[in-house]
Design a protein around this nucleic acid. Structure first.
Lengths: 119, 119
DNA sequence: GTAAACCGTGCAGGTGTCCTGCATGGTATG
DNA sequence: CATACCATGCAGGACACCTGCACGGTTTAC
């Protein structure tokens, strides 16, 4: 089950570092596209390598759509959430509601301004 | 965010080996309790060490309730899903629906009789 | 032609989590 | 004292994941 089950893989996938934050960053910017450098600036501490990796993976998963405008200078690469990506936010929200309801102190996150909890 | 956010921790937690399967096994047996040895038999291949670990963790998370009947011989230890545990199944179901809807072949799992997908 | 702006990728290395397998222990009855 | 049940401890290894740094490719402007 561990290796083949898509449900399991989806959950597992979300736990990779930065994945959730990238999705939520794109969600925040819903409606307008986000460029690679914008994302890099928004996600404090992420290295281009990891950002690149995650975006590829998200694209493979069909969660993120990548658009390259080669006519522009310099090349503009823009990212958006796909429809599937928008819907996975609801799933994440479901998890958050569960945590809010059942975690003793009703504080899902100890961190100030946690992007997930602001969701 | 990675370490302190409860939402993140919840997701991360579910990806541990056997965790999902244990929850679903208890869910299947909803209404009646399950003993340690029953779970061990139901989960093919699990070692007592891991089962024990997971059950402890699930108890700490408030997902599973443990009841020890010390008057019985030998000691009967019984496990049930808590209310919170029952509700997390809905969350898992949400993930499954997402996967069903968006994964190309509409088959969430390649494995026959995957416990998660039967959900 | 060379610098600048943007978008990445490759490699080396380290860390830490997680799993396996096996042995062990504790308790209470018959 | 053997048996049934419920676990736990330790050693060892595998693997995924992250970090840091350097490099590369493209097109315009000067």
């Amino acid at each position: 089950m561990q290796d083949t089950c898509t449900v399991y893989q989806t959950v597992k996938y979300l736990t990779k570092k930065w994945t959730l934050l990238i999705i939520l960053e794109l969600y925040k910017g819903q409606g307008y596209t986000r460029r690679f450098s914008e994302l890099r600036n928004a996600l404090d501490g992420i290295t281009p390598k990891v950002l690149s990796e995650r975006l590829r993976e998200l694209e493979d998963e069909g969660i993120v759509c990548r658009n390259v405008d080669a006519t522009a200078f310099p090349v503009r690469t823009e990212y958006t959430l796909t429809e599937s990506g928008l819907e996975i936010v609801s799933v994440i929200r479901g998890i958050k509601h569960w945590a809010l309801k059942w975690k003793i102190d009703n504080i899902p996150c100890g961190e100030q301004d946690c992007k997930v909890c602001v969701l």
